[in-house]
């Protein structure tokens, strides 16, 4: 293993340029796909492409590929909490009509529409 003490891990320029090309191609793709009717899947495709682009940036530009476990734990923790934030918020809002409201609450709910 080479001594990284002065230079750190130097990534070949080729890796950065390939990442750049991949990001540009995915940008063209996500823009183009917005003009094709896929129905519900337009959003799914847009998010899949955005996540792929973010992964490229994190792995190569931000050098996660060359980092040790600690950095990965921080990122996984952040994404886990982000998923709680989004999933629980949406689950709360969209499950409110699943069960009937208890009798005493109904009047208040009717006088104050939430949507």
């Amino acid at each position: 293993m080479p001594d990284h003490s002065l230079t750190g891990h130097v990534v070949p320029s080729r890796v950065y340029i390939l990442t750049f090309v991949a990001l540009i191609v995915l940008t063209v793709l996500t823009t183009g796909v917005a003009y094709i009717d896929l129905g519900y899947f337009n959003t799914v495709v847009a998010l899949v492409i955005a996540v792929s682009k973010a992964t490229c940036v994190v792995l190569f530009f931000m050098g996660l590929k060359y980092h040790k476990g600690l950095t990965r734990i921080v990122i996984i923790a952040a994404l886990l909490w982000l998923s709680f934030l989004i999933v629980l918020t949406l689950a709360d809002m969209h499950s409110r009509d699943w069960a009937p409201l208890p009798q005493p609450w109904q009047k208040a709910a009717l006088s104050e529409p939430h949507r």
Binding site: T30, T31, K53
Partner: peptide, 10 residues
């Protein structure tokens, strides 16, 4: 990268 498709392309 997330703002672009979520705001401009929906």
């Amino acid at each position: 990268i997330f703002l672009f498709p979520l705001l401009y392309l929906i």
